[in-house]
Design a protein around this nucleic acid. Structure first.
Length: 642
RNA sequence: GCCGAUGUAGCUCAGAGGUAGAGCACUUCCAUGGUAAGGAAGGGGUCAAGGGUUCAAAUCCCUUCAUUGGCUCCA
């Protein structure tokens, strides 16, 4: 007998070789029906795999990530089976689950796959799923595995096998399809009830662009049709919220082929939004002792050689600007830090000057690869809400905590209540990716970890995500439809102060090296606004929206009255406009609704006589008449509430 | 940068070798209106750019640019 410890702490005894599925069945049939996989001790196993010694057991269903992964991983195999049946001779790369769904990389030889063919593959998958085939695991020797795939002609699998140790190799088979796979898988194909193949893309074999490009087919599956329907509705909602579409409709920003790819043009309304965000942050920074500076958009090449950026990015970025003077070269600034280091260095500093907090809405230019550009979220010219704090090693913790506090305030103010943090550390196996000495890295990483702990913030540590000059704390926000985005960042840097030989004179009258904290709560104005648009579906918070109200005169005779009201509202600091077009009131309302202007103020004879406006709220209809002063205080209260 | 797709009026799109179309938007006129589209007339296009094939190219071919789904990348 073996002892199985369940998540509630209870211990049950079962015969040796009992499977998780058997255990589930002993608890209830309903549970057994929902079990997709099981966490045995700390590993995720097939639910059908026999357990041979005492273990802790957690049964995994669709509601567990591990359950979903097994489900999607199995779906990848099911898709492979369908592909093999429809396109005999096709070769397989890898087919893992991903965050939402799965993919399989396949080599179709000479043929190409068009999106029109996906429905036939989906249908085949469902047909195969209904055969109710078990996923069967078996151990094979390396020689046997290589022989199997050599004979089949799957050279990619053979290549994968070269790197695997004999004894660790398992095959999974369902129906007619056998794959090299360590699992785990769901018990049977019948659980897969709804299938959608979402996308076809190219992907290099093993992510290496010198290797052959395979066709990657993405899909997602569900245990119930209803869940697929909901998923498709979510995709549709995301499409409707696309900031590229809303940004054009609301006339916030535009692009021009002639100006160049990835170089956004901020239109008047977008500029208002951006300026309001900046004004808000400026005020908060002023309260916290930041000093604003301005630096040029270019700098001599040597500046970036000193900082290390030239060596790291020089050839892949905008190339140097030449001048009439022989040998003189300038670079568009890809970041503000080197300029700020020079500001620090322009005069000697005492420890009494520190911390020195230098802030700039600094526009930078980076030659992002053409395939990377995306609306406002990935561009080649953008403005960071950048600041650099130069401080003594003793001050790092308090400064870091203050920045954390500021970041939380900023996120809350614009309505991002849900966020998580990620501590981005270096990849110890790839030291060539980073500059600076290991002791400084150790100090910087520890400083972040300590400050995060002191703030009581939960943060996941992710190796390999650090910047080349230092570790980061990155903020990830969750938007209104559940998507995650990386926003602001805080970095502790011991390296640039060294490269720029920055110093301060300590209380001991000796020179010391300051520590530099880089931070940007918004990240970049462009990316931040793109996320804000998608989060709010274009209905920006009242304090940010460029047009807070529209005055809609019913007839020509009411325009003069509207002008009086407009003057009063503008005097009260509100912004809006009069729709004096020669149109019916119904038409004006419709157009204003579509422009997502939060308040419509309708004025006709009745309102004019009573010195009122009829208030209509976007999306919510008629709110009744108010006099102008009452409307102003209501608006101020709404703005204040935020 | 790589693989695939796309580019026709301000917007959404039709047209697939024989000289450019619709709806909305815009302009003008009529209608002076009460909570999501009043009516009529009109203007608007080197069919992304360049080259080629052809008697003839928006349409077929090539190159470039841009957009886009992925991959890789993100100081």
């Amino acid at each position: 007998m073996i002892k199985i410890t369940l998540p509630d702490g209870s211990v049950r005894e079962y015969a040796e070789g009992t499977s998780s599925m058997d255990i589930a069945r002993s608890i209830s049939e309903g549970l057994a029906r929902n079990v997709l996989a099981a966490k045995v001790n700390s590993e995720i196993w097939d639910a059908s795999r026999p357990i041979t010694s005492d273990a802790t057991l957690q049964l995994l269903t669709w509601n567990d990530d591990g359950g979903k992964y097994a489900f999607w991983h199995s779906s990848a195999h099911l898709m492979a089976e369908a592909l093999e049946s429809l396109y005999p001779g096709i070769k397989f790369g890898i087919g893992p689950p991903v965050e939402t769904g799965f993919y399989y990389d396949v080599d179709l030889a000479d043929r190409s796959l068009s999106p029109d063919e996906l429905p036939a593959i989906e249908a085949k998958m469902l047909e195969l799923a209904r055969q109710k085939n078990d996923f069967r695991r078996r151990n094979v020797s390396k020689a046997e595995a290589i022989a199997f795939f050599s004979e089949k002609g799957d050279e990619y699998k053979v290549e994968l096998l070269q790197d695997l140790a004999d004894g660790d190799i398992t095959f999974y088979q369902q129906g007619q399809f056998t794959d090299l796979c360590k699992g785990p898988h769901i018990p049977n194909t019948e659980k897969i009830k709804a299938v959608k193949l979402t996308n076809i893309a190219g992907a290099y074999w093993r992510g290496d662009e010198t290797r052959k490009q395979l066709t990657r087919i993405y899909g997602v599956t569900f245990p119930q049709q209803k869940e697929l329907t909901e998923y498709l509705a979510l995709l549709e909602e995301a499409r409707k919220r696309d900031h590229r579409k809303i940004g054009a409709e609301l006339e916030l920003f535009a692009f021009s082929e002639r100006v160049g790819a990835g170089l956004p043009l901020w239109l008047p309304k977008g500029t208002i939004v951006r300026n309001r965000l900046q004004q808000f942050l400026r005020q908060e920074q002023a309260k916290r002792g930041y000093q604003e500076v301005m630096t040029p958009h270019i700098g001599k090449k040597e500046l970036y050689v000193t900082s290390g950026h030239y060596e790291k990015y020089g050839t892949d970025s905008f190339q140097p600007i030449h001048t009439p003077r022989e040998g003189e070269e300038f670079l568009l600034k890809p970041m503000n830090c080197p300029h700020h280091c020079e500001i620090y260095g322009h005069k000697p500093h005492s420890y009494r000057d520190l911390p020195l907090r230098i802030a700039e809405f600094g526009t930078v230019y980076r030659y992002e690869q053409s395939g990377e550009l995306h609306g406002l979220s990935r561009v080649r010219g953008f403005t960071q809400d950048d600041a650099h704090i130069f401080c003594t090693p003793d001050q790092v913790r308090d400064e870091f905590l203050d920045v954390l506090d500021l970041t939380k305030l900023v996120l809350a103010r614009v309505g991002f209540e849900k966020f998580t943090a990620q501590i981005s550390l270096r990849d110890l196996s790839k030291p060539e990716k980073y500059i600076g000495n290991p002791e400084n890295w150790e100090k910087a990483e520890q400083a972040i970890i300590d400050a995060v702990a002191a703030a009581g913030l939960e943060a996941e540590q992710v190796p390999g995500e650090a910047a080349f000059y230092g570790p980061k704390l990155d903020f990830m926000i969750r938007d209104a439809i559940g998507r995650s985005w990386q926003l602001g960042t805080i970095q502790v840097d011991y390296n640039l102060p060294e490269r720029f030989q920055l110093e301060y004179i300590g209380a001991d009258n000796q020179p010391h090296r300051p520590v530099m904290i880089h931070r940007a709560p918004f990240g970049s104005m462009e990316r931040f606004i793109s996320i804000l648009i998608e989060h709010t579906a274009g209905k920006l918070p009242l304090w940010l929206v460029p047009e807070q109200f529209a005055l809609l005169p019913i007839g020509e005779g009411h325009i003069a009255y509207c002008k009086e009201v407009l003057a009063q509202l503008e005097a009260a600091g509100l912004s809006g406009y009069i729709d004096d077009r020669n149109e019916t009131i119904g038409r004006k309302i419709r157009d204003t609704e579509l422009k997502k202007v939060p308040f419509m103020l309708i004025a006709g004879d009745k309102e004019m006589e009573e010195s009122k406006v009829a208030v209509r709220k976007q999306g919510q209809g008629d709110q009744g008449a108010l006099d102008v002063a009452a409307f102003i205080s209501m608006m101020n209260a709404e703005i204040e509430k935020n």
